[in-house]
Design a protein around this nucleic acid. Structure first.
Lengths: 338, 338
DNA sequence: CTGAAAGCGCTAACAA
DNA sequence: TTGTTAGCGCTTTCAG
């Protein structure tokens, strides 16, 4: 373990306390002593041992970010926002890929208990509100992105699923569609639930009948979307001209299914997704989708989180609802005649 | 914080040493004592403080992964391979986004010096071989993905750029192309250099003339590729029927440029990229590209790295060259008449 | 303004 | 088989 603080102290002819003070920019050190110490640090090539410091000060300046899949751009954009902001705040981020398993999320949350990290951010977590609030109440610092947890101590940031779903369906209705299917992710996910809620609300608003056979779910994956679309088409027969998929992945599956069945997008079937995957812009026809400010959501939340940990109190607020926008593109731009 | 090892010791009526032994599965503990301790751990809800342990044992079981951009799928797939393998090996991974800046890479490498991490993996690093070898020689554990560093102590895994470039150009030549442009990334990147080398080698092999005006570089980005393609077209006039881009991003830029100029892909211009971005399969026409086993590269390297740190010696070898495959798709499937 | 010394929570000699 | 105890390298009271 090479050179340590005591070596620097000796070289500079001071105590370790003084070295520590200049290292941490603490006040009350003569400029003269300060520069002597700095010189010694320089000369010896001293690097303070972060682990020792962490133990002493009881924090690690590290945040765990738990996501379902590192490869999905929805998550990586959020992670990037988090990492970049953490970097300017001098925090580190531990990346945790839960591979869609709630148990892995829970395992990663142990990083909090064993003090490896100061806080954990869960992005669209699989574990239920109950477990999360319980952990928060035990005094651990957790935050959530993409979902609203109704709990004082859990800051979160999310978009209004109901609202944009309403917009999506309204848009589709305005394009002349009356038989609009909804493809949820996991039927028990909050996101899916709220998006479904918005869908229903829009149907009512537009005076369109609710037809249960036009609802299915595809697990947020392309293959799931593909299969669900198959079922939908089988059930609906010809009475289906538009589908609102709860994410772009599934919309991709819808594309594939339509291609195989010789249905043209958007002439025969209109498609709208959610997430604004990079692919959605490049595929043809380009996919209409809902864009969320993912990078910003990550950056904003982690900033608030870090500030709160250091000021021992959350500033203004802990719950952020951000706006998303509907991007109308090729896949839903064909106007249907009444 | 909360309950610590001494509390467990007292509750179980043993010493901290014994508790430590059962916690770490050390031998020489009576089954009876063991279960008494385990019961106490359970009852008190004890979580060993990882920081204290890290300090004591002088390692953190954490690896830093430094990438240029967390949002690029080439990197995230590698990161995923690393994270997943690290997880099974009980290691954690710190994600470091260098935002394409060598200085940030260097800053992140300080995590090694201050003992925050046991090792660092650099993916296609910007910093030069010199600095890396110097760090390795100071005893720090670093590894590289996507580039071959000729140094004993730096394990690395990479694909043979020359070889697959040769294949790409050969393929293009076989499709009847004689005027094949090469779009490099950064002209000083090793990858670009080697891919250029393969390109030249292939020209020679195919008895095609080398025309300097058919070389340009686009910084590995879509916009860079777009602009470079514009220059290429301006310089070459009609004498240009195929372009080999050093990555898919730039190929996307080429698509855009061709679209704007009314050039059809693949009839007028054939395009081949590298990386097998997810988009390349979805764009139309689908993009021919070179696929590298990214996930595997990450997983394999980190596995070797972890093993080496624990056995205090690298097993069989430290340098891995893996094969990549050319995926011929729509963008280069039009056969040109001689 | 500076130094002495306690102690963060754990592990691993060494002793018993 | 188990316990005692000395640190890991740092920060931070408390005295001076």
């Amino acid at each position: 373990m090479d050179v340590k603080i005591i070596d620097v102290a000796r070289a500079a002819g001071v105590s370790t306390a003084t070295v520590s003070r200049v290292l941490n920019g603490s006040p009350g050190v003569t400029p003269k002593t300060r520069s002597r110490v700095e010189a010694a640090v320089q000369e010896l090539g001293y690097h303070p041992n972060a682990v020792a410091k962490n133990l002493r000060v009881q924090k690690t300046k590290t945040i765990a970010v738990i996501v379902q899949d590192i490869n999905v751009s929805y998550f990586t954009e959020i992670v990037k926002g988090i990492e970049n902001m953490a970097y300017v705040k001098h925090y580190k981020v531990l990346i945790c890929d839960s591979e869609n398993q709630a148990v892995k999320e829970l395992e990663y949350l142990n990083l909090l208990m064993n003090r490896t990290v100061d806080a954990a951010i869960l992005v669209s977590p699989l574990v239920g509100d109950g477990q999360l609030t319980e952990i928060a109440e035990r005094g651990y610092s957790i935050a959530v992105i993409g979902r609203h947890i109704g709990h004082e101590q859990i800051p979160c940031i999310y978009t209004d699923n109901v609202k944009f779903s309403l917009e999506v369906v309204r848009h589709l209705a305005e394009m002349g569609h009356r038989d609009i299917a909804f493809l949820s992710g996991f039927s028990d996910s909050i996101d899916s639930y709220e998006r479904l809620e918005g869908y229903m609300k829009a149907l009512k608003e537009q005076r369109l009948p609710f037809r249960p056979e036009l609802i299915d779910s595809g697990g947020f994956s392309e293959s799931g979307g593909y299969e669900a679309m198959g079922r939908l088409l089988d059930r609906a027969g010809g009475a289906l001209t538009a589908v609102y998929a709860a994410n772009d992945e599934m919309a991709l599956g819808v594309y594939k299914c339509c291609r195989e069945r010789g249905l043209r997008i958007p002439e025969d079937i209109a498609v709208v997704g959610v997430d604004n995957n990079r692919i959605s812009k490049y595929i043809s026809p380009s996919l209409s989708t809902v864009n969320q400010p993912k990078y910003t959501m990550g950056a904003l939340l982690v900033e608030k989180l870090i500030d709160s940990m250091n000021e021992d109190q959350f500033g203004d607020k802990r719950v952020f609802k951000v706006d998303s926008e509907l991007l109308v593109r090729g896949s839903s731009s064909f106007r249907r005649e009444g």
